[in-house]
Amino acid sequence: MRIDWWTIGLQTINLVVLLWLLGRFFFRPMAKVVADRQAAANALLDDAKAVQDKAAEAIREAEAERERTVAAREAALDAARKEAEGQRAKLVEAAHAEAQRQRADAEMAIAHARGQAEAQMTRHANELAADMAARLLEGPGAKLPLSAFLPELEQALAALPEATRETLATSASPASLVSARPLADEEKNMARDTIERALAHEAALAFDSDPALIAGLRLSGGMAVLDVNLRADLNRVTARLDKQDG
């Protein structure tokens, strides 16, 4: 065996040169590429992290905004609810007042109507009473003599104003003397004498009959109408009752 020191030296030099060449052209460029890629990947990761953080921040802001919106919505709903309750209370109160007013009006209208109805019924009752009285008096009234009414007629004529008495039953303005039943001539003369005595002048009279008077006389002429009969008495009684009943 023989060691070739020249070969050892040359191989050592060769390996040192190879070490330098591979280091320069292989390992360092490879390490640089890997490092650059790692740096790029780290940059991408950093960017992605930044985007992720930004997205998380946006999500947090959106969540906060949503919570604010929900709170505002709740507040608006509460305010609207309170306002609605207030308006409702006002409306109920107004409706209640309106109902009370309408009820009072209705009660008043009912009372008024009831009063009117009662008055109407009273009038009807009075009229009915008058009719009943008239019916009852038809028989006895027809038997009453004319002389029962002449004093009253004379007093009524005397109560008239002087000017009225002078123009009543004149030939220029004859008067109408209506009796409940047709008068006999004697009765007509008796009536004429009574009237002329009260008027103090000759009376121009036209005689007529009207059973509605029941009993008595009605002297009418010009502006004057003198009722001395039971119908007129019943009418006066009825009017007084109506006035009393309201």
């Binding site: 020249w6 060449l21 591979l22």
Partner: peptide, 26 residues
Amino acid sequence: PVPVTQPVVATWVIMAVMVLGALLLK
């Protein structure tokens, strides 16, 4: 004066191949 043996020549060839490959890859 330097004797060049077969291992040295083979090493040169291997070096050349490796360096060429490294350059191509680079």
